[in-house]
Amino acid sequence: MTNEFERQAVQPTIKKTRRGFRRKQEQQPPTPEPTNDPPVRWVQLRLIPIWLRVILVVALFIAAGAIGITVGYSVLGGGDSADALKWSTWQHLLDIMSGKQ
């Protein structure tokens, strides 16, 4: 029985951590002393600049509107899809709305 106690006393205690097992007798590495240097700031570069994003969004809205007008005029209205984007078609619609015709 005394031999068991001696074995336990001789073996170093082991502490279980998240990274594995660590012996309690091992010394931790010294922590670095804080310096007065300013912290390093990371600069994030944008792949697409904001002004280009605004232009892309406006262009996508215009393209989506043109596609919607073309599909609506040709499918729902029964007209030719090329006539949907002609100025004469829109002038005719404006004349009807204003009561000139």
Rank of each mutant, 00 (worst) to 15 (best):
A59C: 14
G68R: 02
P38R: 14
Q44L: 13
T13E: 07
R7P: 00
G99I: 11
I48E: 08
S74L: 03
Q8Y: 09
K15E: 09
P39T: 05
P38D: 06
A63M: 14
M1V: 00
H92R: 08
L93H: 08
A9K: 01
L52G: 03
V75C: 02
Q25L: 05
F21A: 12
T13S: 11
P38F: 03
E4H: 04
Y73N: 03
E33C: 04
W51Y: 13
V71R: 08
S74R: 03
A64W: 15
E4T: 04
V57T: 10
Q91W: 08
A66K: 04
D80A: 13
Q11R: 12
K16Q: 13
T2Y: 03
E6R: 00
A66T: 09
G79C: 10
R53Q: 14
K15L: 13
R23I: 00
G77K: 03
L94A: 02
H92V: 08
A64Y: 08
I50S: 09
S88E: 04
G65E: 10
D37E: 12
G68M: 10
Q25K: 09
Q91L: 10
I69D: 00
I48Y: 09
G20W: 14
V75H: 06
K100T: 02
P49H: 10
T35M: 05
Q44E: 09
I14F: 07
D37V: 15
S88N: 05
E33I: 05
L85T: 12
N36H: 13
M97S: 03
I14Y: 06
L47R: 12
P29T: 13
S98M: 14
K15I: 05
V40A: 07
K100V: 15
S74M: 12
P29Q: 15
V54Y: 01
W90I: 15
V58P: 03
Y73K: 02
W42G: 02
V71F: 14
K16E: 10
P34Q: 04
P34H: 01
K86N: 11
P29G: 01
P49A: 06
P38Q: 11
G77L: 01
Q28G: 01
L52Q: 11
V57Y: 09
R18A: 15
I62T: 10
Q91R: 11
S74C: 02
K24Q: 11
D80V: 09
M1L: 01
R53F: 10
T17R: 12
E33L: 12
Q25P: 02
I67Q: 07
L94Y: 10
R7N: 07
T31E: 04
G79N: 14
T13Q: 05
V54S: 03
D37C: 03
Q11T: 13
L52P: 01
T2F: 08
I96G: 07
F21W: 13
Y73G: 01
T70D: 00
W90T: 07
H92I: 02
I69C: 03
K86C: 12
A84H: 00
G78N: 13
I62E: 14
H92Q: 06
I69W: 00
A63H: 08
I69T: 10
L94C: 02
G77S: 01
V58E: 05
W51P: 06
L93F: 04
A66S: 09
V43W: 05
L94R: 05
D95Y: 08
P38L: 12
Q8L: 11
G99L: 13
K16N: 06
V58K: 07
L76F: 08
P34W: 00
P49K: 10
